[in-house]
Structures are given as structure tokens and as C-alpha cells.
Design a protein around this nucleic acid. Sequence first.
RNA 1: GGCCUGUUGGUGAAGUGGUUAAACACACAUGCCUUUCACGCAUGCAUACAUGGGUUCAAAUCCCGUACAGGUCACCA
Length: 555
Amino acid sequence: MTNKELADLLLPGVDSDISKYEKIYPERNLGEKAIVTRFAPSPTGFVHMGSLFQSFISRKVASDTNGVFFLRIEDTDQKRLVENSVRGIVDDLHNFEIELDEGMIDEDKEKGSYGPYLQSKRKDIYQSFVKYLLEQGKAYPCFCSAEEIEETRLLQEKKKQRIGYYGRFAKCRRLTPEQIQEKVANGEPYIIRLKSHGDFEHKIKVHDLIKGTLEIPENDLDIVILKSDGLPTYHFAHLVDDHLMRTTHVIRGDEWLSSLALHIQLFETFGFQPPKYAHISPIMKEDNGVKRKLSKRKDPEAAVSYYHEKGIPVEAVKLYLMTLANTNFEQWYDCNKDKTLADFPFDFKKMSSSGGLFDVEKLMNISKNYMSRLKASEIYDGLLAWTKVHDSEFFEILMKQKDYAISVFNIEREQKKPRKDFACYSDIKNQTWYMFEELYDSHEKEYDFQTIQDKQEISKILTSYIENHYREEDSKEEWFEHMKDLAEEFGYAREVKEYKENPEKYKGHIGDISLVLRIVLTTKSMTPDLYDIMSILGKETIFSRYRTWIEQNQE
RNA sequence: GGCCUGUUGGUGAAGUGGUUAAACACACAUGCCUUUCACGCAUGCAUACAUGGGUUCAAAUCCCGUACAGGUCACCA
């Protein structure tokens, strides 16, 4: 019985001519340095930070080189499928502005000419390649049951031997064609294994773009390439897909490092040029002094939805991811303030070969700096989009008072050293509610007086301010002069310096007085410039808030 | 257990044999500035290169052992 006949017996009706695929999926006509890469998740749920990081880098290198970035869905494990997760993955990428050149764009839609991009639709292709291998005598059927494999494993463990289906443990490898024929005739279920010719004692050198040159033992495991449901395993699908889709760079998590020797062997078996590999270390998290992988189950910040809920701008998250990816990015960005992420020359060599720690505080800092550089109208737009989903009350107010809201967000903004007090959109309401009448009215007010506590004294200060010192048309300088007059009137120093020189002569200084006016107006001791706040709020509101407070605090 | 990888301060890290006081950034602390806060500026964070050997005139940087950490060893990806 020839290999060809055996192959026909095992995979009847499958065309073993793989050369036709070379024509259907020709070499891509791209620039010499163009990088073709992909994000290839299994549809088991939503995208988490680690995968987002990988896609972000993949997208970046593809864009930098005028290459291609595509999304392939690896749904060869039918047991683990989660409903609608393709849609979820597509949405997550879209929400992070990671655009796809090719691949799945919805649950059952795709674009690009190297598809299908859903592995379950590529069954015929995989089977052709498997059959080709069978005909070449480079693969064989295996009839071992799960129990038999388990037995072998236990035996290997007991004898302290390497675990796996290889060498003398690969018993189906030695089956004669007649035995195979008989088992097939008996209806025994089988899978197809690679007939490995690797030598575990022999080491090969492989180059990884991030990890550098590695020395790893050759693969000698006869791994499963086609499962009993007729679908391939990851390893085989990786070979077929990344060859036919003409992937030049495989960027993936470093959990794959241990099967790298196998993957290279697979490419060599077919005489294909293997892609370049870049294995990314997982993003870590510090947990009670222990470093561990960022976990989707334990860490809320591992889910991309966390960033949308908090309202951290996508761009800020990207800036942070880039600082994790290439630590020279931060300095580069600092020196090139007019440039964007797209201008940054990403370099695999600058990637840390060990896993970086995910630091939410650092992310917040980056986001705070990023937001401080936005224009007031950009803050408004971003906030409007965020509140539309997360805060309908604020959304309505913003819609109604667009110009007013922009003027509020413009306080100490759009200048050389802008204020940095919003790290995310969910911060804004908490820091500006007193600027919006509707929010102010419904908000519970707690006045955090610091130096001047006496309510009568405060009432007197407010009254005098209303009656003697407030002028609607005052410039900032005039306004501040009047504040100083007020301070003097109540026995407070006009200048802080003056007070510090002669503290016994005064009850306090101008700062104490303005703090009272600030707190009664806003309830807060920490606010932006008081003059700006007053100018925007206007006379009526200021007087009304002061008078209300006086009324409510009469003894 | 086998195999692979990693280990620089509270954190991210720069740095690959020799102008090192080991950059820069975040966090924290103090001071200055300031009508508050924020910003900004200045300073600090005890002798930080896992550990033991070796190579060398010279090592964070090269080699070996040890410890610790991560990954992997499925008809899961």
C-alpha cells in the first residue's frame, strides 16, 4: 500500500494538491520592508490588555512599514467558543482605534483577499496540507485513546522521562499499512500526527526579534496536526495560515516560545520560509509584593472596558502602551511635543525581554498630561461622548450649554503651562459640578473651611464683599486689589509676605480671605483660579450663593 | 521533573567590558513660587546592578553554579 493510497483512505475526497493555494494566495506585492502581521485570538471572550498590547504593536509596525495588519479568528476549538465574541473583539479593537486592513470585521463578515479569516472555514485547506504530508510519509494516523496517552504520561513521569508522544513512545508511528487499514475498517477513531525527524539532543539557534538569539532543542514530538473533528491544531493552522496569508512577522505572547522549535520544523517540512518571530512578555502586575501576570479575572484593569468606563482617552492608553513597549518613547515624546505616536520609530530591539509591570498610576499621569494639552473644545467633545454612555444627567446639561461648558473647561487651559487636573473623563464632573447650576443645586454641600471657621466672621466678610468690593466689570488686577481691600478691612494682611514678616500684626493674610470666598462659592478649597470662576459664574450666581449661605448660617 | 527565558532603586527602566557621581520618567518627601489647589522649579529617596565563584589590568555588562520568578510540556489556543 502506497502513501498515496493510505492518504486516500484516511482523508477521502480531499485534494492533496497544495500548489494551487500558492496561486490563490500569491506573494503580496508590497515594499521590501513591509511587515505583514496579524492578531489571531480565539473567540473565547473579549480582548484583554495583553492582547490589546500585541495588536497595538502589530498595527504600529505594519503602519510604519506600509504593511498589512489583519485579524484572524482562531476558532478551531469548537468547545471553547463564546457567542458573539468575534463581534466583541472587532469592537474592542475599533474602540481603541486599532484599524484592520484585512480580516474579520463582524461575526460573519470579512474583508481582504487572503481569507477566509475564520479558521473553521479553512477546513479544506488544512486537510489538503495534511493529506499532502501523509502522501509524503511525513504524517501518520494515531489511534491511541486518551487513556492510553495518559498511561504513557504516568509511566514517563514515574521513570522521570520527558513527557510526550515521541520516539519509542510513539507507538502508532510503527503501525504497518495493513494494521492501519484494519483499524480504519473497524471504525476506530483516529487523528493525524506529524512524523517528526527532530533530535531532542540537537540544539538549533533561532532568532527572536525581542528575545534575541535562542538555543533550543529540536522538536521530536509527534504532535497532533489534525484533530478527530477534522480541524487542525493551533500549530498546524499557524503554519498553513501564516504561510498562505503571507505573514512576515508573527507577534505573539511568549507562552509560544516553547513551541517555536516545532513551528520552525513545520515550516521546514514544507520547505516554506518561516516568518520572523517576536515573542512579547506578558504584562505583569504587582500583587502583595508578588509579580504575576495581569489577570482578566482578578484585575479590573486587564479588561479594555475598564478604560472606557473610567473615560481614559484612547490616545492616552496608547501613549502608555508605547512607553511599556519602548521605554525610550517617553523621552522621545518629551523632546518632540509636536509629533504623534505615528511618528515614533518603534523598534523591537528596544522592547524589554522580561515582562513589564502594568502601573495604573503611571498611566493616569500620562493621561493627565495628555488631557492638559487638549483644547477646551476637545475636552468638551470627549466628555460629551463619554457622558452619553455613562452619565445621562451630565450629558443633557452639556448638550444644552455647549459654549458655557467649553468656557468652564477652558479655565487655565490653552496656555503654556496648562492646568493638569483631569486624568480621565470620569474625573471632570467631580471637579466642575459647582460650575453648572443644575448640578450645584442638587449636589450635597459640605463646606471645608480651613483657617477662618467663625460663621459670623464669614458672613460679615461675604456681606462686605457683596456690598463694597465686587465690581462686575473688574479686570483681574482690579478684582484682586479689591480683594486686598477686603482683607485689610477685616484685619488681614494685603500681602502674604507682609504677614510673614509681622504675623502678630494681623489675623491672617489675603489668602485666608480669598479662601472663604472660594469655599462658599464652590464648597471646595482646591479649585482653579477664583477670578476665572467668578467671571464665568457671573454676578447673579455669586451673590445668590453667598446670600443663601448667609441666610442658612445665621445663629 | 524536563526544556526555555528572565532577575538594575518603591515602579517603569537606560546602560553591554573602561570619561559611572549607574541616565531619564513615575511615585513619595521637603523647600521655593503662588490668593487655594494644580502647574513649574530645586533637593532628597541610607553604599540599587539577585547570589556565590571564575575570566580580565578592568564587569551591571563575558562564563559556570545557586536561589527566586515567569512560561511550557493537551485531539486549548
